[in-house]
Design a protein around this nucleic acid. Sequence first.
DNA 1: CCGGCGGTTTGATGAACATCAAATTGCCGG
DNA 2: CCGGCAATTTGATGTTCATCAAACCGCCGG
Lengths: 227, 227
Amino acid sequence: MNKHAITESERGQLLKTTLLTGLQGRSLQRMLDSAIVEEREGRSSVFRQGENADAFYCVLNGYVRLFRLSREGRHADVRICQPGDVFAECMIYGGGDYTFNAQTADTATLARFDLGTVRRLAEEDTNIARAVMTCLSQHLIDTMHCVGSDRLNTAPQRVADYLLERCPIDRGPASVQLPFQKNLLAGMLGLAPEALSRAFSTLRPRGVTVRGRMIQIGDVQALREVV
Amino acid sequence: MNKHAITESERGQLLKTTLLTGLQGRSLQRMLDSAIVEEREGRSSVFRQGENADAFYCVLNGYVRLFRLSREGRHADVRICQPGDVFAECMIYGGGDYTFNAQTADTATLARFDLGTVRRLAEEDTNIARAVMTCLSQHLIDTMHCVGSDRLNTAPQRVADYLLERCPIDRGPASVQLPFQKNLLAGMLGLAPEALSRAFSTLRPRGVTVRGRMIQIGDVQALREVV
DNA sequence: CCGGCGGTTTGATGAACATCAAATTGCCGG
DNA sequence: CCGGCAATTTGATGTTCATCAAACCGCCGG
């Protein structure tokens, strides 16, 4: 793993993250100054469940799986983080140990923030406190949505939801390019990879065709009926 | 629904909520001053999904279901709130509309906080900001735990988890008194009531006996093996 | 062009859980 | 103590999804 201070292009990516967007001037600079950039290999562990929490992260590039392991060794993704996402920021005020594992899915660039430092900054600087609260709030809303979605919708419905959410248009045909392996999408939707594949098959009569990472949607309106 | 300013005994209960515990002095007083207490009947709707969000709540007494409805009318609980819990606080900085429904399960006493007012207080008062962040963080950690638990554990394991978490002791026999109907427990664990009942049956050979709301555990150690 | 490898799909099977219906229990007011 | 109602349990059944195994595909290095 390669650690270094922040470069100009990384600065641009950091500005797009849920945490730093909305910050400017002195507040922004303080946050940027406290960041350390890490270049990581694929499948590298960022932290493990049970370890003492000392940092949280922004994803600049690549993907990170957050997951838990059962005693018997089964594996369940809790969240898939993309560029722009922030993770483990709940530990700033959550204290104690990490409650899940984090592992890069592919080579990834992360910005690391020290928990204590940011906690101090948040207490001094109202703007930073607001940024943290906004980030936590959005994250909580998303996670509650995830619980509801898991409990309410079947696999094809969750897949249709995902596709519709990144559909630029409202009606007629469209195409969606998956930003990562189907493997990760399965984890994001709480499915085994096989189940994702079958969910796509189920959607085929509804006008969804799959070619690698490229998904063609015959009619967006029609797909909306599935959900 | 009966609305009134805060009484002395309600004050005591509010102090125990995730949000106000940790606050004192002037900061605490500001929050208390902004609260309105609502006495509600059972099954009364606190707010609905899609409505413009203008308030969040602390539960002083009784229970509140947070749930989503599918288009076909199916129903899924996202969270069951108990006395001491705070809900919809993610809207302080989440903005926009409520993303789920809230309904009292039984007669309940809630403290209502105006979103705009508390947002303003949080910007002025570092202590209040810290309280909000702590509350959001804990809530987020719990909700992520819920996602992982739903995806990783079977019904009997989730029930065992629940029982063990409110078990005062570490080994030997114990008993746990459910604070509410099994109906609510089922919703909390993401199960149909029938599935909860069957989960208890599954645990019977492991030394768990059920008599109404009173659950007897033969050996806590043994139950821990189930998880 | 060939072979190999990882990711994906397909097939077969079983476990877990929802759903519907009916029996049972618990609880409350009379 | 007796209904009566709601909550819970039990039974029967079907759906959904995980799991294991095998086939398939795309991609890359030789």
